[in-house]
Simulated assay, not measured.
Amino acid sequence: MKTYKIFILFFFISSFFLSAQSSQKIILDKLFDQLIEVNDSNNAEQLEKKIWSVWNEHPNNDKLTDKLEFGTELMQYGDYNFALRVFDNIIVTDPQWPEAWNKRATLYFLMNDFTNSLNDIEKVLSIEPRHFGALSGQARIFIKLQKYEKAIKSIERALKFYPSFRSRELIPEIERLIKEESI
């Protein structure tokens, strides 16, 4: 009887978590459907803000949301080592939350650790392939590494689901760098 109760409790808890994650996915799907259709920058910017607010909210753990916010503040104030510990802790607690990986990727970028940043970006994109922030960060790393074609591919990948993405403005500059490199 005790095993049965534990099973029922586990079922309800896991159903709750799956429900929260699936409702967040439904919201994101709707926002991305709108984003691909919008043709003015003001509306696109509003949709982008809504998407970021969903990404920054853990689907079922407010404490992780608070930790992410805390780690982000630490990063903004330059306390990179403490921020890294906070993001590591979040990732250990929930390795399926793409925004935790994205924040750590950003931190690694700020620390000039491009290898770890790219690895974390790949993890973000494996969980949320539409993460235009991660793709933009990936493009910026590729530019720093002078891998210009890869940078363009990252931006083009984001433009498939976010046609008015501001990072599109980087493409002509990257193409100029490619031409200069070939001279």
Rank of each mutant, 00 (worst) to 15 (best):
L35T: 10
S154A: 07
E181Q: 07
F82A: 10
K25S: 05
L159K: 04
I26E: 15
S167N: 14
S182I: 11
M75S: 14
S41P: 01
K25Y: 06
S23W: 10
Q46W: 15
K5F: 14
I8M: 06
D79C: 02
K144S: 07
R176P: 03
L28G: 00
I36D: 04
F161Y: 04
D33N: 13
L135W: 02
I36H: 02
Q24R: 11
W97D: 02
P129M: 02
E48C: 06
K30S: 15
A100S: 09
Q138N: 11
Y77G: 10
V38S: 12
Y162H: 13
Q21R: 13
L68I: 07
A83T: 02
K123N: 13
P129D: 05
G78P: 03
Y162T: 05
N60S: 08
S22E: 15
F142G: 01
S117N: 01
F11C: 12
I90P: 07
T72W: 09
K150V: 01
V54G: 03
L35G: 09
K67R: 01
E69S: 15
K50F: 09
Q21T: 07
L110C: 04
K63V: 09
K63T: 01
E69I: 11
W97M: 00
N116Y: 01
E73A: 12
I26A: 15
P98L: 03
P172A: 09
D94Q: 08
E37D: 13
S117E: 00
S41V: 04
E37G: 07
N81D: 14
V92A: 09
A100P: 00
I91N: 03
D40N: 15
I143F: 04
T93F: 14
A158G: 05
D62M: 12
A139S: 08
S14V: 02
R104V: 08
A100V: 02
G71P: 11
L28C: 05
K103M: 14
S154W: 00
K179E: 12
R104H: 12
E175M: 09
E99Q: 08
E156A: 00
